[in-house]
């Protein structure tokens, strides 16, 4: 049986996955805090004969190549452009750090910043209602909130006092592959993930920027070029399937 069928089918599948990743990137081109993902391809080898690769005499040994394997990588440490919004509760990180959030089940979630909100009990939450792990309560009579580049949150009360209510800390993810992407710009560290606590401004964790949001890291030009490439590669693989089919047809037609 011709291996070309399978190899081409694997190729079609790989390009399909690449297309999915590109589609996801493009659809999030204006999502704040979004980190683009990249598809990586690697050749797959079915069986590696123990020795003698010099002249792969294909009559004697089976072909070792069996197509391609795609893998999707999230490029977490790429910095998006910061855009000033003027809204005091917008928060962006300029650097590689993440803000830790408390998930609904108490699990740790990571967040690249975005719109903050105040919960019913005065707690600082994300716009989606997830509490910050820093657990910061804003007094009820607050008129303005200031967040310093070092993460210290100050509340200006109606009595014109400025009180320090807490500090937003950052964590650094040492290996982007140990984090999985959730929706809403959230990331969940896997079990083996190593998270290093860092004060904003230290150890390359980055600083906090109030009144700004981080733009998506998707570069539309690059995605469009990849999209065309994927389309052509997909078509080429489809051609191979047809050719393999013709070959099989020939073999079947040998006996008239």
């Amino acid at each position: 049986m011709s291996g070309a069928f399978y190899i081409a089918a694997v190729g079609l599948d790989a390009q399909q996955q690449a297309l999915d990743a590109i589609a996801n990137n493009i659809s999030n081109v204006s999502t704040s805090g979004f980190k683009r993902s990249q598809v990586r391809f690697a050749e797959t080898l079915a069986s590696v004969p123990a020795e003698d690769f010099v002249r792969a005499d294909l009559g004697a040994s089976a072909s070792t190549s069996s197509g391609v394997r795609p893998e999707i990588m999230h490029l977490l440490n790429e910095q998006g452009r910061l855009e000033s919004t003027g809204r005091p509760l917008d928060l962006a990180i300029n650097g590689a750090g993440f803000i830790e959030l408390m998930g609904p089940g108490g699990q740790t979630l990571l967040w690249r910043g975005g719109a903050l909100d105040l919960g019913d009990d005065g707690k600082l939450t994300t716009a989606a209602g997830l509490e910050l792990k820093a657990n910061i309560s804003i007094p009820a009579d607050t008129t303005a909130i200031e967040i310093g580049t070092d993460g210290i949150v100050r509340a200006r009360t109606s009595a014109s006092e400025v009180i320090e209510v807490g500090q937003i800390m950052l964590v650094k993810v040492e290996n982007p592959a140990s984090v999985e992407l959730l929706d809403g710009g959230l990331y969940r560290p896997r079990e083996q993930a190593r998270l290093a606590d860092a004060k904003p401004g230290e150890d390359g964790a980055g600083i906090l920027v109030q009144g700004s949001i981080e733009r998506s890291t998707v570069d539309l030009n690059q995605e469009m070029v990849s999209l065309l490439m994927v389309q052509r590669a997909y078509a080429a693989n489809a051609q191979i399937v047809q050719a393999a089919d013709q070959l099989m047809g020939l073999a079947n037609g040998l006996r008239r």
């Binding site: 011709s2 291996g3 070309a4 069928f5 190899i7 081409a8 694997v10 190729g11 790989a14 390009q15 690449a18 990586r40 391809f41 690697a42 050749e43 294909l58 009559g59 072909s63 190549s65 069996s66 197509g67 391609v68 490439m229 994927v230 590669a233 080429a236 693989n237 051609q239 191979i240 050719a243 393999a244 070959l247 020939l250 073999a251």
Partner: peptide
């Protein structure tokens, strides 16, 4: 002839499947 053609198509299939694989070198029979 038939078996050689089949191997050729197979090698082509692998090359085309790896059209976008970095560092891949095309194989010829």
């Amino acid at each position: 002839i038939l078996s050689l053609s089949e191997r050729r198509v197979e090698a082509t299939a692998n090359n085309v499947a790896n059209l976008t694989t970095p560092g891949f070198k095309s194989e010829r029979l």
